[in-house]
Design a protein around this nucleic acid. Structure first.
Length: 105
DNA sequence: ACGGTGACGCTCA
DNA sequence: TTGAGCGCCACCG
């Protein structure tokens, strides 16, 4: 299993209305130091949010920074915010309330 | 093989 | 409370 594939598998586990962080994902795989590598993987996301195939969809918009900020998004941060709002996640000042929405593996 | 870069994280001043 | 510096792993030229 490729590193990237592992990342995608974990991201797909995130339920609607929840979010996860690079830190948690990295920790789940090996150690928290892998955050950058995780970013690489999602950056090469084969299924952008525009993909309607739910089975293969990778909700990369649910992956945020450990500090609650959205981080980057190759499709545009504004779209990311839209999608998250659409799932009922409140975003304040471009940040997410991790206490409420963080999904832990 | 090597060095640069990135959607990051931690530590310390 | 901020900001700078360093480290980390994977990917690409």
């Amino acid at each position: 299993m490729d590193f990237k594939q592992r990342v995608y598998q974990l991201v797909k586990k995130i339920p609607p209305g929840k979010v996860s962080t690079y830190k948690e994902i990295a920790r789940e795989m090996r150690n928290t130091k892998l955050g950058r590598a995780v970013g690489q993987a999602l950056r090469h996301n084969p299924y952008p949010f525009t993909t309607f195939n739910k089975e293969k969809q990778i909700p990369c918009h649910r992956v945020i920074n450990s500090n609650g900020s959205l981080g980057g998004f190759n499709q545009g941060v504004e779209q990311k915010i839209k999608l998250l709002n659409q799932e009922g996640i409140k975003i304040i000042n471009n940040k997410i309330d991790l206490d409420k929405y963080l999904f832990k593996f």
